[in-house]
Nucleic acid binder design. Structure first.
Length: 271
DNA sequence: CATTACCTGCAA
DNA sequence: TTGCAGGTAATG
């Protein structure tokens, strides 16, 4: 599932392929609800002729900056894949948006579950998207003190808090479980119950699991990863019943805020 | 705060 | 054949 590391890597890879290209036409758009707030023909008309000036990331949004002050914002949700495709490649049935570029290559947005979304934003819309999201966990601003301020006075459990995009941006179900495990914190701990050293551990673990994720995905983009690296990708996610690598206790799986939540009862005691 | 809708692939 | 997977918006 695309979370911050996957979205970041997608943006970097796309930038390398499409920077400076001009969009000639929307060549396919067979799932109109994918485009938010615009009908397909208006979307096509506004996008046609625009030059791609930058591709960046904010939270789990890929931001394709166009000329004339427009930004194409793409959210992959669960199953979205955004990439540049060579002129020779034909889109498959799950590719619902195709943008033709001036060098013959194309941008494919493939999404089997059709949860993905596209917004065409002006400056105000972009500012709104930015304001709707919390701090970037890989930014300088994300200090232990900043995390403490987010945790302070909130009775929410740690797991839902980490998933709340308005507080910390970009963490999803997988990396939330991984960060809590590395910090040795139970997912149901109330946010405002953490001791100072626990806040520091969580701050460090959020950064490190995301940084490792970005590095791993970047490597994956360049070629096949080694088998053991694939196997060891996560410590707790999707490992219910398997022994914890640290203490040997069987990894548990519970439901928290409607999400599958994996943790080690040995390393992450309830209290 | 919790629940449901949005979708489809895939495992049970 | 059923139900689960999960990001987010909309809705009780």
């Amino acid at each position: 599932m695309p979370e911050l590391p996957e979205v970041e890597t997608t943006a970097v890879a796309l930038a390398a392929d499409v920077l400076g290209r001009r969009i000639l036409a929307v060549e396919k758009l067979d799932h109109p609800p994918m485009i938010e707030d615009l009908d397909p023909s208006t979307f096509a008309a506004r996008v046609r002729g625009r030059r791609i000036e930058a591709v960046t990331r904010r939270a789990k949004w890929i931001l394709i900056r166009l000329d004339e002050g427009l930004t194409l914002a793409v959210h992959l949700r669960m199953t979205g894949i955004l990439r540049a495709a060579p002129a020779s490649e034909a889109p498959d049935t799950h590719t619902h948006l195709v943008l033709g570029l001036d060098d013959g290559s194309r941008i494919f947005f493939r999404d089997s579950r059709k949860f993905g979304r596209v917004r065409l934003l002006d400056a105000a819309g972009l500012a709104q998207l930015d304001a709707a999201h919390g701090i970037e966990p890989l930014s300088e601003a994300f200090s232990a003190e900043a995390l403490e301020a987010i945790l302070h006075g909130r009775r929410t459990r740690l797991k839902p808090l980490l998933l709340d995009q308005t507080q910390v941006a970009g963490i999803g179900n997988i990396y939330a479980d991984e960060a809590l495990h590395e910090a040795r914190l139970h997912p149901l701990r109330p946010a405002d119950s953490l001791e100072p050293d626990e806040v520091k551990r969580l701050h460090q673990s959020v950064r490190s699991v995301l940084e490792r994720g970005v590095r791993r995905k970047a490597r994956y983009w360049d070629g096949p990863v080694r088998a053991h690296e694939d196997f060891d990708e996560f410590a707790v996610y999707d490992r219910a019943g398997e022994p914890c690598k640290t203490c040997g206790t069987a990894i548990a799986r519970i439901t928290v805020a409607q999400r599958g939540t994996h943790f080690c009862p040995g390393c992450q005691p309830e209290r």
